[in-house]
Simulated scan of single mutants.
Amino acid sequence: MSFWRKIAGLAARNLDEAECDVCPPGLPGEDPAFSTAVTALGAKLAKADGEAQTGEWLAFSEVFHADEGSEGNVRRLYQLARQTTRGFEGYARRLQKRYHACPQLLEDVVDGLFHIAGADGVVTGDELAYLQRVSELFGQSPLVFRRLKATHLGAEAGDPYAVLGARHDASDADLRAAWRAMLSEAHPDRARARGLPAEFVEVAEAKAAAINAAFDAAMRERRALSLQGAA
């Protein structure tokens, strides 16, 4: 019996089944608590912008697959959960409690939710706030959420990580290595050594300045986030 069939009974009784605080053995797809919470989070996301669209159900089906014999039961649960966004935080907390030892799995869930949010071609402010809150409840750092957001929506203008070509949640050491590598490649002395005209040297100087400014901005932001976390 697939896990999608198992959740049919949960829909009729109680949607809140994730109570264990130990990451259960086996595949998440075999865990009815996981499938119930994910279905509810996807459905309630569809309602976050005020109206649940058919395209969002189709996007959910693309990300979280159900076998043919279980699709009706999954859709029933989805329709029930999407009536309101109320209760989504409870599902996110229970999923984090159950799978806190599996951070990549929780990241995959947020990744899938981003896909659903963009099903109609735009991610609204309300949907983005929903996604950010789920990410917070999953215990993900702001930099992890920023990376996921950039993956789906593109980097924001002036994003220092885009300038440095680094992941938003790269370690400090990796970020510094990326900065040094880019700075070495763009350093004006390289242009001078190649005998390039003054115009090219000026371009290299501007690029090096932008790389340094991006690194400084990223490190300032990290220090600010660290202080917020310690407060």
Results as ranks from 00 to 15, higher is better:
4 W>G: 06
5 R>M: 10
6 K>A: 15
7 I>L: 14
10 L>I: 14
11 A>P: 08
14 N>S: 14
16 D>Y: 15
17 E>L: 14
17 E>G: 15
19 E>I: 04
20 C>G: 12
22 V>W: 00
28 P>G: 07
30 E>K: 11
32 P>G: 04
33 A>Y: 01
33 A>H: 04
35 S>M: 14
36 T>C: 06
40 A>R: 00
41 L>D: 03
41 L>R: 03
41 L>T: 00
43 A>R: 01
44 K>F: 01
46 A>M: 07
46 A>S: 11
48 A>S: 06
51 E>I: 09
53 Q>W: 13
55 G>R: 13
55 G>W: 09
56 E>G: 05
56 E>H: 01
57 W>D: 08
57 W>G: 03
61 S>N: 10
63 V>H: 07
65 H>V: 13
71 E>D: 11
72 G>Q: 09
72 G>M: 03
75 R>Q: 13
77 L>W: 04
77 L>G: 07
78 Y>E: 07
80 L>Y: 11
82 R>K: 15
83 Q>E: 12
84 T>Q: 07
87 G>C: 03
87 G>W: 01
90 G>E: 06
92 A>Q: 07
93 R>T: 02
94 R>S: 15
94 R>G: 04
96 Q>G: 04
99 Y>F: 05
100 H>Q: 12
100 H>M: 07
101 A>N: 03
104 Q>D: 14
107 E>N: 13
108 D>C: 08
109 V>Q: 09
110 V>K: 02
111 D>N: 15
113 L>C: 01
113 L>Y: 05
114 F>H: 06
116 I>C: 00
118 G>C: 03
119 A>M: 05
120 D>W: 06
122 V>M: 13
122 V>Q: 11
125 G>W: 06
129 A>G: 02
132 Q>P: 00
132 Q>E: 15
133 R>L: 11
134 V>S: 01
134 V>F: 01
135 S>C: 09
141 S>A: 14
144 V>I: 11
145 F>N: 10
147 R>Y: 12
148 L>H: 12
149 K>Q: 15
150 A>R: 00
151 T>Q: 15
152 H>R: 09
152 H>S: 03
153 L>R: 08
155 A>K: 07
155 A>Y: 14
155 A>N: 10
157 A>N: 05
158 G>H: 04
159 D>G: 03
161 Y>A: 11
163 V>N: 06
168 H>L: 08
169 D>C: 11
170 A>V: 07
172 D>Q: 11
172 D>G: 14
173 A>M: 10
174 D>S: 14
174 D>I: 08
175 L>T: 06
176 R>Q: 13
179 W>Q: 08
181 A>Q: 06
182 M>Y: 09
186 A>T: 02
187 H>L: 01
188 P>D: 05
189 D>V: 08
189 D>N: 13
192 R>S: 03
192 R>W: 04
195 G>W: 02
196 L>E: 08
197 P>T: 00
199 E>S: 15
200 F>V: 15
201 V>R: 02
204 A>V: 07
205 E>I: 03
205 E>A: 11
206 A>V: 05
211 I>E: 00
212 N>C: 09
212 N>Q: 13
213 A>G: 14
215 F>D: 03
218 A>F: 02
220 R>M: 11
221 E>D: 14
225 L>Y: 08
225 L>A: 07
226 S>K: 13
227 L>T: 08
227 L>D: 14
230 A>Y: 07
